[in-house]
Design a protein around this nucleic acid. Structure first.
Lengths: 191, 191
DNA sequence: GGGGTAGGTCTGATCAACGAACTGACTCTC
DNA sequence: GAGAGTCAGTTCGTTGATCAGACCTACCCC
């Protein structure tokens, strides 16, 4: 087997996790789901991902119990893809990876930081709130702050995850449209 | 491009991180590096990875600043691959992914847990120590406990990371040899 | 009927992963 | 000194996933 989910030799939980979310695009799909993206076409536009690959990934993530399909119309059958409890539990590794990327793999375009909605403190490396001494802030209590290009006050969004009924983050903010709406990330060098 | 590191459209820190450690085998190599594996042949045996792929991954991780090469003999030139500071910073996402895999993607073979060496408390989901209220236990202070098959007391190792001068974890413990030495992971369902 | 929306499937080209064989520079053992 | 072993690769043919883009199906609205 050339690629994919075959980590059979790697008999450990990291390999098990990578079988589920280790493939190309999978974690980016999960990230978008945290930001409120729910529909096939919205994932398609934001990720600029081949349709066939998106179809396969959504099916695999649903099969693995990370996402679940919720019908929003009957004919033709159309589904929202929303995070399950297992999917919501992916927030700690996801946030940790984003922090690492911001610190060590950034190209110097800091545009987004995550904060505890209750107190406004920036989340630490592990997704906890240092001010409130909360070890793990739930995705629904996380606020995403956009750092404006020109130093003006940025936009603030809730990382609403499966709680959202719409996709507020789909609206482009600074860029033209589409994928630009998700541009940026944690500011590098600030830990 | 069919595969690989091309997340150019995904202008965020998660995509940046995935460019570095998102490829097949990369995180497993980093995990082994945390457990003290340093040499080409040791990675080869433990991961059961194609030689050409290992060559490419080690070069890519070195290029990305996650690993660095340290010559341990001059002729023929031979190198240890050890974690840099950036590589050591991968511990939080790595541990979070292992915890997630243990909780949601396990096949029911719990064999390994991680504890704070100072107090013995099991690390939480984010790699912190709940007893000592340490938000992030450094890899060098992490103790890895093996859960014995037969209920007998398990082995205890230090997750020595780049601090180790040898690879104590290379010795097989319960299984026959090779990859089995790394079998297991966090116990599922225990958070 | 024509156009738009949504969620796919299909196809051929490309390219990475895989396994196995091979290479080169040494060291060890007999 | 010959042969075997070690270590870290490189090369090569096969397999199969990814990609871009065209096409399809089912419905809605005008």
């Amino acid at each position: 087997m050339a690629l994919g989910t075959d980590y059979a030799q790697q008999d450990c939980t990291l390999a098990r996790a990578l079988e589920v979310v280790g493939e190309r695009w999978s974690l980016l799909i999960v990230r978008d789901a945290f930001y409120g993206v729910r529909r096939f076409n919205d994932f398609l536009v934001h990720l600029d991902i081949p349709r066939a690959v998106l179809t396969a990934r959504l099916a695999a993530l649903t099969e693995a119990g990370v996402l679940r399909k919720e019908a929003y119309q009957q004919s033709p059958p159309r589904y929202d893809y929303v995070l399950t409890d297992a999917g919501l539990d992916l927030w700690p590794p996801l946030h940790a990876l984003m922090r690492w990327g911001g610190r060590h793999a950034s190209r110097g375009e800091p545009t987004r930081t995550f904060h505890h909605a209750a107190c406004g403190s920036r989340l630490d490396m592990t997704g906890g709130c240092p001010a409130c001494e909360v070890a793990q802030v739930a995705p629904a209590d996380v606020e995403m702050r956009w750092v404006s290009d020109a130093g003006r006050p940025g936009r603030v969004d809730q990382v609403a995850a499966a709680l959202a009924t719409t996709s507020p983050l789909l609206r482009p903010v600074r860029g033209a449209a589409g994928a630009d709406a998700f541009a940026g990330g944690d500011d590098p060098g600030n830990s």
